[in-house]
Design a protein around this nucleic acid. Sequence first.
DNA 1: TCAATACATAAGCACAGACTTATGCGTCGT
DNA 2: ACGACGCATAAGTCTGTGCTTATGTATTGA
Lengths: 104, 104
Amino acid sequence: MSDADIFKVLADPTRRGVLERLAGAEMTATELRQGLAISQPAMSQHLAVLRQAGLISERREGRFVNYRVEPEGLAPLHQWLARYRAFWPDRIESLKDVLKEMDQ
Amino acid sequence: MSDADIFKVLADPTRRGVLERLAGAEMTATELRQGLAISQPAMSQHLAVLRQAGLISERREGRFVNYRVEPEGLAPLHQWLARYRAFWPDRIESLKDVLKEMDQ
DNA sequence: TCAATACATAAGCACAGACTTATGCGTCGT
DNA sequence: ACGACGCATAAGTCTGTGCTTATGTATTGA
């Protein structure tokens, strides 16, 4: 998978939701599906996309597969964004704005 | 446009290319089309998407419309990424990796 | 005033991608 | 050994979206 496709991978809200849940703790595919109106194959396909993008990794444990975030997969996104850091006002970096975002 | 759709907007390579060219200097729609195998309406539609996402702004000048990057539009992306900063190794932030990325 | 230019909008098409159901493969418990 | 379970893969459907051509609107220069 090309680095350039990181945006396509993250464009899907379900996949971003998966990352967010995995940020808290390692989880199986079935656990990730809890509370979501999504079929098992759909989740499996999303997880495959995330894995191929290097955003998550898996650890087999018998019948179960535990997924976890692979933070280095976000490096291309970080580096893309870095090109624009020089342009934006300091305010964007401020803690206030970050907290406001996390609040919503 | 919802903040959540910033990824969809940036998922398109043409739109990322537009941002990259605009990062250098203000430019008209026709200038942005130079070197790209893309029709005028297609470019106009991409610019509309970028504008609605708050990623660019326009300054009319007679028949011409000069576009420029609106860096604050990237704030949602920055803030999304900030949630994962805590997880990743210091190495991702390092200058070496950024340079390697810019090199390719 | 009128043709040319710069850009936007409308409408239709075609492909990508997210979903579904059906099925396959390996592992567990009994 | 065998049914239940966890997950992956296959194949088909449908919606979203990026493209096209055609046309509209405003501005410019001759």
